[in-house]
């Protein structure tokens, strides 16, 4: 028997860490690292939930338990890993493009699109 609280709190912690990582970093590649952690937090949550019998928390009330042959949690996790891989692949390609075009991947240094950015011009000639 395993306590499920442990992995659940791990998921919460990773989510918090991932969010911090996305927001607190200036280097775009490191931001993507934070995003990885956030997505992994979701994975941990899915795998944890999949350790419950079918029906999830709501199913615990019933007298009968069974195991879902579709294993939704784990299958979903594999999907998520794949989506994340695709996302990171494209993300890194775009970051490299940004580097080629601007010579930096510091997000604070490339913000002329923002209206409140000092680099923004209201009426380009």
């Amino acid at each position: 028997m395993i306590h499920l609280l442990g992995p659940a709190v791990l998921a919460a912690a990773l989510a918090g860490i991932g969010v911090y990582g996305i927001l607190a970093r200036r280097n775009a590649v490191l931001v993507l690292i934070g995003a990885e952690l956030l997505l992994n937090a979701a994975n941990v949550l899915l795998v944890t939930a999949s350790a419950l019998p079918a029906g999830g928390l709501a199913g615990l009330e019933h007298s009968q338990t069974y195991h879902d042959p579709l294993i939704p949690g784990q299958v979903m996790t594999i999907f998520v890993i794949t989506v994340a891989a695709a996302e990171i692949g494209l993300g890194l390609a775009i970051v490299l493009l940004l580097f080629r075009a601007r010579g930096t991947v510091e997000l604070t240094a490339v913000r002329e699109l923002g209206e409140a950015s000092p680099r923004h011009t209201e009426t380009p000639s």
Binding site: N43, L46, A49, A54
Partner: peptide, 13 residues
């Protein structure tokens, strides 16, 4: 995904 994880945890589907 966190949302889906929570929904799945709650309902198992």
């Amino acid at each position: 995904l966190l949302g889906i994880g929570l929904l799945f945890l709650a309902t198992g589907s």
